[in-house]
Every structure is written in structure tokens, then in C-alpha cells.
Design a protein around this nucleic acid. Structure first.
Length: 294
DNA sequence: AATTATGTTGCGGT
DNA sequence: AACCGCAACATAAT
């Protein structure tokens, strides 16, 4: 049985992309912007042309590219949300700069049929935004507009500012299954379906438990477990199934080979050896151990 | 071959 | 306020 799981970039995937782009983009000057799909781009290419990239950063699952202010009084940011199938691929000519090779057909020969926006820099390198399903976007924003995109968000799961006290208080307000609350960006950002499944397995907590039924100690355990699997995802450069997510250099991540519960239906739980089960919870595929996750 | 599942976010309605 | 259903879209699996 071959499983093909649609994987969206979660925090570790966007963090991996951010770290790589932080190495290659600062100092680049935009020469031209080709918008292949109007739906994917908010703003005008003329807002970016001739401007230099200063920094690249991440908040939640969004990636922000800051440009210099040479031709404007205000800071300018290019904010990206990859949603389900977005990719950012950096190339020099038609080569992956980091030596990676394409892991899916639509990452070859860029721009491909799924390339929605291409950024060409003055030194001949380019950044391509691929997005098969067209849910993702890139927006040209000023600082105030950028903050508006951030203000409704809870803290990032791997932000040192998040505490078990905060998370417990949030959980106390919610009766829905804990997995849904763990994945709610207004509560905490960065825990998508894969890492939520794995965090709950590591913490040995059932995804079905009402969020407000967890004790303070359980919330504390779950927070630590979530941070552990997210850190592991970052260390392994994210999770790649079926080439949906790839790094900036076109390479697969490594977490899919080290995961705990997600995609492991029928295989033994690493805590207790019982087979991992798959069910649907809140409309999402949920993998868990019915024996040790209580 | 038509139907279904997929996954994030934000919206409107309860 | 919390919760729920749905829409946005393309594609693979059944």
C-alpha cells in the first residue's frame, strides 16, 4: 500500500525555507516580477522593482521579506502564505543553488505550469512561487498592513514567551477536542495536523479529550511535547510526502521518516507497541494510539 | 467516470 | 464567546 498524503507546509517547513532564504536573498535587487496568476499576487510589481531585499523572517506559517526604503517613505514587506501546496524555489539559471534535485514534476523547468509568480534579480538568480491549488498568496504590504496580518495570532509554539499557564487558560475556555484547539492559530501558531498528531502521541494524551478536561500538568506535558516535535521537524528540515513540500533548493525534508503517529496507520506505537489507528476528527485525518493515549 | 478526500484560514450564521 | 459549516481550488484515489 502506497500512501500519498497531501502535506501542507507547517511551521518547521516555513522555518526551513526562511532560514535558507535568509542566507541567499539579502542584498538581492529585484529586476522584474512576472505575475503568472493574478489571484496569487496582491500589489503591483512596480512596488518591488529596483528595490533591495534586507531581511527574511517568519511568523506563524507566514514568511516576510523586507525591502529597503529607497523609493518610499515607508517600509515595504512581501508577505507569503504557502497554504497547502505553496513552494518557494531559488534558482541560478535553471540550477538549484544548494545542489538539490526536483522531487516533483512541477518543480522542474521553472517557471512550470504551477509557477504563479517569478522574481528575477539583477544578478541573474530568481525566486519562483509555485502553488498547485492557488490558495496561497504573496502580498506587498507596508508595516501597518503587516501588523494587521499578525495581530489576531496567538504566540508561536516555539516562542520562548509561550507558557503552560497561558495555554492552560486558553484550554479552559474550550470544550472541543484538544487536537482542534492545539491547531487553532488564534490560540497557538505553528502546530498543523502532522505535528499535532505526533505531539499528542508523545504526550500520551487522546486527541478526543475536551480541551478543558486537561489538568495543568497535562497541558504542561503537551506544550513540551509539541515544542519537541516541532524542534525535531526543524532539525530534519520539515516533512515531505509526495514532493508537495520541498526546500528552497528542491530537496525533500527528513521528518516523514522519523514521525511518531502521522501516516503510521497499523504500525506499532513507539510508546506501547499497539497499532496506530486512523480516524477523522473535526474533518481531519487523525492518527493516534487508542491504548496509551488517554 | 463521477464522486470524494485532501488541508488552512476566515467568514457568516447559530 | 465558542462553535460550526462552508468556500476558496486542483488533483489523486476510489
Amino acid at each position: 500500500m502506497v500512501y500519498t498524503l497531501p502535506i501542507m507546509p507547517e511551521l518547521p517547513e516555513v522555518e526551513t525555507i526562511t532560514r535558507r532564504l535568509s542566507q541567499v536573498l539579502p542584498g538581492k535587487v529585484v529586476a522584474a516580477v512576472d505575475v503568472h496568476a493574478e489571484k496569487s499576487f496582491f500589489g503591483k510589481p512596480s512596488q518591488l522593482v529596483n528595490r533591495k531585499i534586507i531581511t527574511v523572517s517568519r511568523r506563524a506559517k507566514m514568511l516576510s521579506i523586507e525591502l529597503d526604503s529607497t523609493h518610499s517613505d515607508t517600509q515595504t514587506f512581501l508577505l507569503t502564505h504557502l497554504k497547502m501546496t505553496g513552494q518557494l524555489i531559488y534558482v541560478a539559471g535553471n540550477e538549484r543553488v544548494g545542489g538539490g534535485h526536483p522531487t516533483a514534476d512541477w518543480t522542474k523547468d521553472l517557471p512550470s505550469a504551477h509557477t504563479r509568480i517569478s522574481y528575477h534579480f539583477t544578478d541573474g538568480t530568481a525566486l519562483h512561487f509555485n502553488d498547485m491549488r492557488l490558495f496561497g498568496w504573496m502580498k506587498v504590504l507596508d508595516n501597518q498592513q503587516l501588523q494587521e496580518h499578525y495581530e489576531k495570532l496567538g504566540p508561536d509554539i516555539n516562542d520562548s514567551a509561550i507558557t503552560d499557564t497561558y495555554l492552560f487558560a486558553q484550554f479552559q475556555r474550550r470544550r472541543v477536542p484538544v487536537k482542534q484547539v492545539l491547531m487553532d492559530p488564534s490560540v497557538v501558531c505553528g502546530v498543523g495536523n502532522i505535528y499535532a498528531c505526533d505531539a499528542l502521541n508523545l504526550a500520551r494524551i487522546s486527541p478526543f479529550r475536551a480541551a478543558n478536561s486537561l489538568s495543568f500538568a497535562e497541558v504542561s506535558t503537551l506544550l513540551a511535547a509539541s515544542q519537541e516535535v516541532i524542534d525535531r521537524g526543524i532539525d530534519l528540515q520539515g516533512t515531505t510526502f509526495d514532493g508537495k513540500y520541498v526546500t528552497v533548493d528542491g530537496m525533500a525534508g527528513g521528518y516523514q521518516e522519523k514521525g511518531l503517529a502521522y501516516s503510521r496507520e497499523g504500525q506499532p506505537c513507539y510508546n506501547c507497541g499497539s497499532p496506530i489507528q486512523k480516524v477523522k476528527l473535526g474533518g481531519r485525518g487523525t492518527y493516534y494510539c487508542g491504548v496509551c493515549q488517554r
